[in-house]
Simulated scan of single mutants.
Amino acid sequence: MRVLAAMSGGVDSAVAAARAVEAGHDVVGVHLALSRMPGTLRTGSRGCCTIEDSRDAWRACDILGIPYYVWDFSERFKEDVVDDFIAEYAAGRTPNPCMRCNERIKFAALLEKALALGFDAVCTGHYAKVIENADGSRELHRAADWAKDQSYVLGVLTHEQLKHSMFPLAETPSKAEVRAEAERRGLSVANKPDSHDICFIPDGDTRGWLEERIELSEGNIVDVDGETIGTHPGANAFTVGQRKGLKLGRPAPDGKPRFVLEIRPKENTVVVGPERMLAVDQLRGIKVSWAGLPIPAVDTGEEFDCMAQVRAHGDPVDARAHVERDEDGREHLVVRLIEPMRGVAPGQTVVIYQGTRVLGQATLDSARSLERPDLAPAR
């Protein structure tokens, strides 16, 4: 097969490309230039897609003896990931930019260009597995190493995209083995730190970054009864579950910390309350997509058993889910959690599983407790 290897400049993508070459595929390496500041340098393990990463990707391709290109996707990345991130926060939601990047850049824009150029598949260093069934259909599953499993951030992939996705690290039992393999192959990235945090906010200060891009205005912080107990510099800079940075002038009656329970952007209000009220047991999602062919219950609307996960490294919990359709035929995913989750916010992504199989995902429109009364309006 003709394979386009997406080379991030890290050890995972380098070893994935090496395995694709070793398997006999005709491999070409490509690094995506996503930054609008190409001179940016990585700081430790923060950030990615920098000029340093581009050079590391080139060195890996040179060792592997494969062609190497840099494709400028910075404009598309700004529009589809960065601008979306800002817009979601401005609307009082908590987005996951890695999901958007995988959905709109790595497995939409990149795959689209790869297919147009005659490639059969895109290879990445993600830890996840694609299984082909006897009928030719594809399923997305967790990787062998659950500690490094990245199937959550790939939950946005469609059946058609899975047909052209290659994850050579799927069966690798540990990251240590990947690094050891890179060392044996003479790849200079063998001991390079993993990137973390949001790649376009390399210093990790999400709130400070947002304050420069979202018009913030002072508003009230209210308790669960709607009583004003403080002020904030702008509701959009807060997120559900947040404890630090509230700067309330008086403690709660029981002396325990307060947490952000709800963001009301239209009112520019932040609602806070006790930690126990962060627990939710019903999630409703929009922008639903299915990773592979949907299971029969999706079409019938029947409730089905599943596991729900709302964070890349979060623990999945037992759940029951079903699909509702509105008058325009749009699907809405309703997930009832058997065990409540804490600090779940609109804008986050819920990915549902059966066993190791990823069924699909949705962007949360609401997350609430069926036992908790609605929070009082501000007064």
Results as ranks from 00 to 15, higher is better:
L4E: 02
A6V: 04
S8N: 05
V11F: 03
A14S: 13
R19K: 09
A20D: 02
V21Y: 06
D26H: 03
V27F: 00
G29S: 10
V30K: 07
R36N: 09
R42I: 02
T43Y: 14
C48V: 05
I51P: 01
R55P: 10
A57Y: 03
R59N: 10
I66N: 11
V70E: 11
D72A: 12
F73P: 02
E75L: 15
K78E: 12
V82L: 06
V82C: 05
F85Q: 02
Y89V: 14
A91D: 08
G92T: 00
R93Q: 08
P95R: 06
C98F: 13
M99D: 06
E103V: 15
E103C: 11
I105T: 03
F107I: 11
L110M: 11
K113I: 04
A114R: 09
A114T: 15
F119V: 12
C123Y: 05
G125C: 11
A128V: 13
A128D: 10
K129H: 07
A134M: 11
R142M: 12
A144L: 12
Y152M: 08
V156N: 12
L157R: 05
T158R: 15
H159L: 07
E160H: 10
H164M: 07
M166G: 05
P173F: 07
S174M: 13
S174W: 15
E177Y: 09
R179I: 04
R184M: 13
R185W: 02
G186E: 10
V189K: 03
K192E: 01
P193G: 06
C199Q: 07
G204V: 11
R207Q: 10
S217Q: 03
G219A: 02
D225L: 12
P233F: 01
P233A: 08
N236K: 02
A237V: 00
T239V: 13
Q242E: 06
R243G: 00
R243P: 00
K244R: 09
K244Y: 02
L246A: 02
L248N: 00
R250D: 02
P251F: 04
G255Q: 09
K256G: 00
R258E: 01
F259S: 05
V260S: 03
I263G: 00
P265A: 07
K266F: 15
V270C: 05
V271C: 03
M277C: 09
Q282R: 07
L283K: 04
I286P: 01
K287V: 08
K287S: 03
V288C: 12
W290V: 13
G301T: 13
D305Y: 15
D305Q: 15
M307K: 15
A308E: 03
G314D: 09
G314L: 06
G314S: 10
P316C: 14
P316D: 09
H322Q: 14
H322E: 08
H322W: 07
D326T: 12
E327M: 13
E331S: 11
H332S: 14
H332G: 15
V334H: 05
V335M: 09
R336C: 08
E339Y: 10
G343K: 04
V344N: 04
G347E: 00
Q348D: 13
T349Y: 02
V350K: 01
I352G: 04
Q354E: 13
L364Q: 02
S366R: 06
L370E: 09
E371M: 12
P373K: 14
L375R: 07
A378Y: 04
A378N: 05
R379Q: 07
